Amino acid sequence: MTADRTAGWSGTATPGMFDEVHRCLDAAWALLPHGPQERALFDTAVAEVAANILQHTAAHLPVDVRFLVTITPERAHARFTDTGAPAPPGVNATALPGPAAESGRGLALARAAVDSVTYARTAGVNHWDVIAARRPA
C-alpha cells in the first residue's frame, strides 16, 4: 500500500516561489509510482497557476501565498491561496484567447493539462485548485 504524500510552503509571492513550489512537487511525487507525462502535465498546470498569481494578483507586493500539494494513488491536488488582488472576471473560462492576443493562454493550457483548475475568492483570499486524476503508471 502506498501512502499519500503531502508537501507545502508559505511565503511571499516573488520569482523565488517557483523554486519552493517545485521542491514541494518533488517531495510529494517522491516514492509514488508515476509516469513522466502524468507528472509533467500536473507540474506544468501548477506552474501556470503560480505564474498567474505572481503576474496578476501580486502586482502590489507583498502578497502572502500558501501552497499545498497532495499526491494520492487516486489523484494529485495542488492548492494555492493568496492575499493578492482578485482575479479578473471570467478567469474560470476554458477558452483560449484569439490568435492576436498577447496573453491569456497560461490558464487555458493548464486546464487542458489536468482534470480541473478552479478559482474562487472568499473573504479577501484567492483560492486556486489544480486537480488531476491519477492513472496507473
Rank of each mutant, 00 (worst) to 15 (best):
T2N: 09
A3R: 13
D4M: 08
R5L: 02
R5Y: 01
T6G: 08
A7T: 03
W9C: 00
W9A: 03
G11R: 11
G11T: 08
G11I: 04
G11F: 06
T12I: 14
P15M: 05
P15C: 06
M17I: 12
D19N: 12
D19C: 00
V21M: 08
H22G: 04
C24E: 03
C24L: 01
D26V: 07
D26L: 06
A27M: 05
W29P: 08
L31S: 15
L31G: 03
L32E: 11
P33Q: 09
P33R: 13
H34E: 02
G35N: 04
P36F: 00
Q37V: 14
E38R: 10
R39Q: 15
A40Q: 14
L41Y: 12
L41G: 02
F42V: 01
F42Q: 06
D43P: 02
D43T: 14
D43F: 04
V46P: 03
V46I: 12
A47M: 10
E48A: 05
V49M: 10
A50I: 01
A50G: 08
L54C: 05
Q55Y: 09
Q55L: 14
H56R: 12
H56F: 11
H56D: 03
A58F: 10
A58E: 08
A59Q: 15
A59R: 15
A59D: 08
H60C: 01
P62D: 07
V63A: 03
V63Q: 03
V65E: 05
R66P: 00
R66E: 09
F67V: 02
L68D: 06
V69I: 15
V69R: 05
V69N: 01
V69K: 06
T70S: 13
I71T: 03
P73A: 07
P73F: 00
E74M: 10
R75W: 00
H77M: 08
R79W: 02
R79A: 08
R79I: 00
D82T: 05
D82H: 11
A85Q: 10
P88E: 11
P89I: 01
G90Q: 06
V91E: 06
V91M: 07
N92R: 13
A93S: 15
T94H: 14
A95M: 02
A95R: 13
A95Y: 02
A95K: 11
L96E: 12
L96N: 08
G104C: 08
G104A: 02
G104F: 06
R105G: 07
G106N: 07
L109M: 13
L109I: 15
L109W: 10
A110E: 00
R111E: 05
R111T: 11
R111H: 04
A112Y: 01
V114H: 09
V114F: 00
D115R: 07
T118H: 10
Y119S: 04
T122K: 14
T122V: 15
T122H: 15
A123C: 00
G124K: 09
N126C: 10
H127S: 13
H127G: 00
H127Q: 11
I131D: 07
I131W: 04
I131R: 09
A132P: 04
A133Y: 01
A133V: 14
A133L: 13
R134E: 06
R134W: 01
R135A: 11
A137S: 13
